[in-house]
Amino acid sequence: MATNQQRDTNLSPDEARALRFDVEEFNTEYARILDAQDIDAWPDFFTTDGFYRITGRENYDAGLTIGLVWCDGRPMMQDRAAAVKTTMVHAPRYLRHYNSNVRVTGVDGDGTIHSESNYLVVETLMEEETRIFQAGLYIDQFVREDGGMLLKSRDCIYDSLLIPNDMVYPV
């Protein structure tokens, strides 16, 4: 189940709190650029060899590997960003991203930080009522590079299996 994985961790409460704050700051900035639909900036949140996937919880729970979006490396993310911006025909929309319940679940020997958090995306089409578009869980791995944090891996596991029409932007 894609929920509440508890990883063995040697972190002191203070260390865990500090890391959680770092992750929350990261996610706040990540949500800001998605809210602004600044899609060109999105790949920069990842390491060059970073991995990004959006998949339904039914797939994740069954160990199935498909992604609605499946990007292995920042170049693939750049190609998706370019497609969203240039080639994918879609109606204008506003999106608002909410992130909460951040839990740092462990730190590896090489410094990789594991965390999980809930996300919610609210969508508004121009002349329609605002609706909850997607509820899900981020399963993340962060590394520190050049003083900042970058995503080595982000798995977006959505509960909202029946997608309303389509999903243009990454979450």
């Binding site: 992604g67 979006v69 499946w70 693939m76 497609a83 029409n165 389509d166 999903m167």
Partner: peptide, 18 residues
């Protein structure tokens, strides 16, 4: 990788749904 072309988030899929 190529599955990115199709589906509800596909480079081609989105256009048709819209």
């Amino acid at each position: 990788k190529q599955a990115n072309l199709m589906g509800p988030s596909g480079y081609l899929g989105v256009d048709d749904n819209e």
